[in-house]
């Protein structure tokens, strides 16, 4: 495993830890999109189906279990925890899952490498992950008060796939793999969606201002 990949995974892990920390410490999920979190549960469930079928490494299996467990834990907090759920921005988190899940599933049925159950779900998970942040970004645009933890959470979540792009470039030149259009393009689109957010996040950090996204 190269440094980009490890940095990407650690960034991803850190973003989740930060979100759980925010929820547990402040007993609030204000500014967090339940839609995005639920999409992540779908992403992880469809991608990590191979968890009990193919063994890669202890690291790989552990990380998959952590991502599955924490994503479900976050959704549980937002939906069922009696204090946390009252802080959820129900009225502003209006993006519909359906409009992302259905097109991604149809696309996975049309564009994939092999027509097998596992492969279609794996492809679907990559397509869905690339757009899963959209409800969160829409919610942030509507929020006038984005707290630091939420801003940094989204930043780390975006940076993770960006680091994977470097990892893919590195692997392409150092390993004997073929061109992998599906993860590469999905990852590129995923990172591109964050571009605007990155710009405003870094600007607010440099100027020591509160983060605010233009509507």
């Amino acid at each position: 495993m190269n440094a980009f990949r490890l940095a990407g995974d650690m960034t991803h892990l850190l973003s989740i830890i930060l979100l759980l920390l925010k929820i547990r410490a402040t007993k609030s999920c204000a500014g967090i999109s339940l839609k995005t979190q639920e999409l992540y549960v779908i992403v992880f469930m469809s991608r990590y189906l191979d968890l009990f079928r193919t063994y890669y490494s202890l690291y790989n299996s552990l990380m998959k279990i952590i991502f599955l467990g924490t994503s479900m834990c976050i959704v549980w907090y937002m939906r069922s925890h009696k204090v946390v759920r009252q802080t959820y921005n129900n009225d502003e988190d209006t993006f519909r899952h359906f409009f992302l899940v259905l097109p991604c599933f149809v696309l996975a049925l049309l564009v994939h490498r092999n027509f097998t159950f596992i492969e279609i779900l794996w492809t679907f998970s990559l397509y869905l992950e690339s757009v899963a942040i959209l409800p969160q970004l829409v919610l942030l645009q509507k929020s006038s008060n984005i707290d630091n933890l939420t801003g940094t959470y989204v930043f780390l979540l975006g940076a993770y796939r960006g680091l994977y792009l470097f990892n893919w470039v590195y692997r392409f030149f150092t390993e004997n793999h073929r061109v992998r259009w599906i993860p590469w393009l999905s990852g590129l689109i995923q990172t591109a969606i964050y571009t605007d957010f990155f710009y405003y996040y870094i600007r607010s950090w440099k100027n020591r201002e509160k983060l605010k996204l233009p509507a």
Partner: peptide
């Protein structure tokens, strides 16, 4: 040549 895509990533 590797026949299948490596799915060793997360």
């Amino acid at each position: 040549e590797v026949l299948h895509e490596p799915k060793d990533e997360l």
